[in-house]
Design a protein around this nucleic acid. Structure first.
Length: 238
DNA sequence: TCATTAAATTTCT
DNA sequence: AGAAATTTAATGA
């Protein structure tokens, strides 16, 4: 019985955490691992930009990636923030994003870029991955639909509360009664996610802090999901 | 209710 | 020190 080298084990571990690979066994993962190398990407690097026709499928092994678009007057609308184990980009047939989307790392990240022939072979050999890819895509559509409804019907305060609750699920780590959002977030970031402005986010965030729904400590946001849920429930619009 | 503008202040690097 | 981020306030749609 031979020890698996630490580096090897770690790489496999990273790969096993990719959402579309969750159905695969260790042997299969090991074979896939050889296909494309992982690269460390510095914070702020734009990996995808509008009209990028390439069909690269990115596996985000570690880090945060922001998917966003820019309006004509240069305002950023953040469509999603992806964390460890997520995928973005496109295959030959399926794009996980629309045309004029940017993808930019929010911190130093470890990504793996799979190219069309490899993706094709992988999907052919492992239909379960294709199935998971569809699940991931439909979940993403679902999220976007919720965002649209939120934008159409709710005021900034409620949109922020919904956003914070969602981020807590996605990136939360327990911190006493609160849940700390484990990602670098400025008020401008939050504004770009709820379709508001930096200033408005500042004032609503401090109101929420006063009410004990959120807590902010040196640019780290913590939220109280139970209280937020209660408030959202108790104060339905209309 | 909230974007906008402007300006002061605090916090990060 | 300089840049980036936050905060406060006034105004108007």
């Amino acid at each position: 019985m031979r020890e698996v080298p630490a580096l090897d084990r770690d790489q496999l571990f990273q790969l096993s955490r990719i959402n579309i690979f969750s159905d695969l066994d260790a042997d299969t993962l090991k074979r896939l691992d050889g296909i494309s190398p992982s690269v460390t990407v510095a914070k702020g690097k734009v990996l995808l930009r509008p009209f990028d026709a390439s069909a690269v499928l990115y596996l985000l092994k570690r880090g945060r990636v922001r998917l966003y678009r820019l309006s004509e007057d240069g305002k950023m609308m953040t469509l999603a923030i992806l964390g460890d184990g997520n995928v973005f980009g496109a295959t030959q047939s399926v794009a996980l994003h629309s045309r004029d989307m940017y993808a930019e790392t929010m911190d130093d990240s470890l990504v793996c870029a799979m190219h069309p022939p490899d993706v094709e072979r992988m999907l052919h050999d492992h239909p379960r991955v294709a199935l998971r890819l569809m699940q991931v895509l439909s979940a993403r559509v679902n999220d976007l639909e919720e965002q649209i409804a939120s934008l159409a019907h709710e005021d900034v305060r409620r949109r922020l509360l919904h956003l914070l609750a969602t981020l807590a699920q996605q990136f939360g780590v327990a911190d006493g009664a609160f849940v700390r959002l484990n990602l670098p977030l400025t008020h401008a970031d939050l504004a770009s996610m709820v379709g508001s402005t930096r200033e408005t986010v500042t004032t609503t965030m401090s109101a929420l802090a006063r009410e004990g729904l959120v807590r902010t400590d040196r640019r780290q946001v913590s939220v109280h999901p139970a209280r937020i849920a209660a408030v959202l429930d108790a104060t339905r619009p209309e």
